[in-house]
Amino acid sequence: MARMKFYCDAERCIECNGCVTACKNEHEVPWGINRRRVVTIKDGEPGERSLSVACMHCSDAPCAAVCPVDCFYTTGDGVVLHDKEICIGCGYCFYACPFGAPQFPADGAFGTRGKMDKCTFCAGGPEEDGSPEEQRKYGRNRLAEGKLPLCAEMCATKALLAGDANVIADIYRQRVIMRGASVLGTGGLFRDRYLRMSPAADLRGASSAKE
């Protein structure tokens, strides 16, 4: 049985946010709810890297553990889904999730926390696959159509991968071998070959563009 996973290749992610809008597009997610986001670390400095994050569909999902109404379930493909009929919008899953995946709309007349919404790995919800009801609540069920999540399928640089964990691990391994670099490497090869500077040297140079 396949075990579905996301993996974002930090060497390739350029923070183009294509995954974010692909998700909005595919599921018509309203303004303010973002099932996926791209986070950039060390923005604007050497070593800057970006990663696209959404629900990671954890095996021992903290959200499921803390849910007071037990609305989460894991599909045969290892996708963590939830039932909006049961969800009470308490927000506990958001407190527990290390990736900040659960999202809550401001709902009703007073803008109270509505029912949780999160990445479904494009696998819909508990309703019948591909039913209008499912689509309305969770967005499109691509997995049922034999397709993978649109965010990964549309990734500009093929940084975001989605699918069977084993296949992804293979792709990843091939890339690492090809690059001969670590997952978060910063181009050590160039430095060794052309710059012959001490490894600690700042490639960017503080003196640049001084006047």
Partner: peptide, 19 residues
Amino acid sequence: GTSQVKGSDSGTLIDARGE
């Protein structure tokens, strides 16, 4: 870090406090 998605802690990649 930073993110173009504006929301609660959207700039945080991983938060161990949830645990």
